[in-house]
Design a protein around this nucleic acid. Sequence first.
DNA 1: TTCTCCAAGGAAACCGGTGTCACGAAACAG
DNA 2: CTGTTTCGTGACACCGGTTTCCTTGGAGAA
Lengths: 378, 378
Amino acid sequence: MDQPETGVKNFVARPHRTCGWRLSAVAKHGYDCLVGEHDKPMSKGQPTINDVARVAGVSKKTVSRVINASPLLRTDTRDKVARVIAELGYVPNPQARALALRRNFLIGLLHDNPNAQTVLNVQEGILDVIRDMDFALVVRPVDRHSPTLVDDCRRFIERQRLFGVLFLPPISENDDLAQMCAQLGCGYVRMGSAQLDEPAHAVGSNDREAVAGAVDHLVAQGHRRIGLILGPVGFRSAHERATGFREAMARHGLAVPDELVTQGSYRFASGVAGAEALLDVADRPTAIFCSNDEMAAGALHTARTRGLQVPDDLSLIGFDDAPIAAHIWPPMTTVRWPIRPMARAAALKLIRPDIAGEEPSRFPADLVSRASVAQRAG
Amino acid sequence: MDQPETGVKNFVARPHRTCGWRLSAVAKHGYDCLVGEHDKPMSKGQPTINDVARVAGVSKKTVSRVINASPLLRTDTRDKVARVIAELGYVPNPQARALALRRNFLIGLLHDNPNAQTVLNVQEGILDVIRDMDFALVVRPVDRHSPTLVDDCRRFIERQRLFGVLFLPPISENDDLAQMCAQLGCGYVRMGSAQLDEPAHAVGSNDREAVAGAVDHLVAQGHRRIGLILGPVGFRSAHERATGFREAMARHGLAVPDELVTQGSYRFASGVAGAEALLDVADRPTAIFCSNDEMAAGALHTARTRGLQVPDDLSLIGFDDAPIAAHIWPPMTTVRWPIRPMARAAALKLIRPDIAGEEPSRFPADLVSRASVAQRAG
DNA sequence: TTCTCCAAGGAAACCGGTGTCACGAAACAG
DNA sequence: CTGTTTCGTGACACCGGTTTCCTTGGAGAA
């Protein structure tokens, strides 16, 4: 009885049929590399590190070194193993890696839908960064009004053993969540117009400056009485935008009387109602700055129902450059958040704090001039 | 030297400080349950199954049995272990489970952004199902035009060892992708208006019937010359909608002359161009059916630039009930895909094919009547 | 009273990677 | 020419679960 030959026969007969591996691996490297204990069956599904090691005639550890690009390897060893990896179509099992390394390669996106297009842009921005880094993006819509919000997020992070999470507005403004992550030792980055007091954990846009630019634009067109529809109370972004508005108006020496300011909620309906209120004022504004596009669309709706022409009778500016801004008529002048670059920066902060960690990331927001602003009439 | 006591001392002193566990676990169950080898340090981070076993005074396997609700346990044992689990705040490590079970608990969502709101609704629908099942949702935007689309998806699935994937239109219509999944042994479900020839792998809506409803509505308002802006060539949904349109028109004995049909791409701009073409026809249509809302918004734009009133001079119907449909003026009559329930059904098919697998899932789409359709003038 | 059988639970191996450490060979210094 | 460093590699334990198989104790039968 020829033990080794039996082993080789078994090897050839079994794994290549059940796993669908390419026989060329053996053809190229010859059977001599197979001397060893071939009697135990090979793994059934995808090839494992053991299979690679066996075929290449090295130890698991050496294969692991090749995968992780260890500098301590001889070139010929590395090449040999790499060739076998390619032949077998071996893919390291991320679960096993995660277990051994005690950290996984999942990053979480927690959000309560600020705006569908925004969420999607963020997802794409994150993917831009992690696509080739073996990380995966897991998403989790949450309910910002839920009393168990923090606990829900905590359970999610704990269960999935997340590497880190990204928070989108509005929940990125929730300090309890940030604190919870810090406690858990889970990396986190907050996106939005948050102030950057913790540069390692925040990526923001400079909303004040952007709003100032919008106000400058209106003033340059001759507008003096400019209305403001606020974002919801307690939102940092809303606060930033309001502050930027007031600062810019003050800079131009223009008043912001209370009757030209109304509370909104970032929703379409509150834009409708806000514009109703502002247009009821005796000396009605010739322009309205809306703290986001959805409300601007609502304001446009109101103007139309009152028979006012936009922009001739009333100029409007929104904020966010949501898709709706470009699709309504007239196309809305608005402020564009560079969401995708921000998401990229945020993901990088999470994954490579060594590179991206400490410097603050504040992105400028740009005025997108479309057709909802005109020279002040009269 | 009192060995056992030293062990207990070590146990009390070390883990509860380093892990932050609640001492009450020990307080409740007493130290007697701790007799054993306490000298090796406990795990540093979250408690593991070993820690639970040690504190509860049972074996790992018994803890495992409790977690997996094995019926072979005595009630008192189960209660004791469950109490310790609660006290310690133990959460099973999903990576370790995935490794041992040789399947993980990740389901993937592959899409090339058909429409941001749709993607988000799908994500929420999936979450509705998996939220409490220890599954997580990982998303992957892809590029449908990439020549490496199938390979990219395959690599993603292999790397992450996904349990299953969901495809959204338009890539859900790609048969190569489905075939690749089948080869890989990865579960998959395709969403969209795909025909349901493989009920276990598809969740669809009945677009034909819905379009027929829209046509009936127009005809009931007196419209006879109705234009059609098609969706992109090669899209099954576009084909379904076109077929539904033609069938319904035929049923009413109405002609669909070639000059009243134009090719679109599901994008805003193609709606603009399509409407231009249709309104240039000598005997122009009094209504246009657009294969999606974005194109309907484009058609509305065109009507407006030509000074036509919608709906008085021209009626429009869209499809999808995208947010834009409700936000433009006039609000657009459209067809609503029950996306979230469809996503729920799809996720269920993936996770529990035993429950949801074999029966076909076809959801009715409803006409949402808003303000873009009026009685035919004249 | 002794034997059998079954339910409850434990020991050890395993999943597929990684870290630690030890070892042999080659390179280098004395 | 020998002793000491490096370098390259392998053996083995470990991560935290699950599975397989075996032990144990107590109830019921002979």
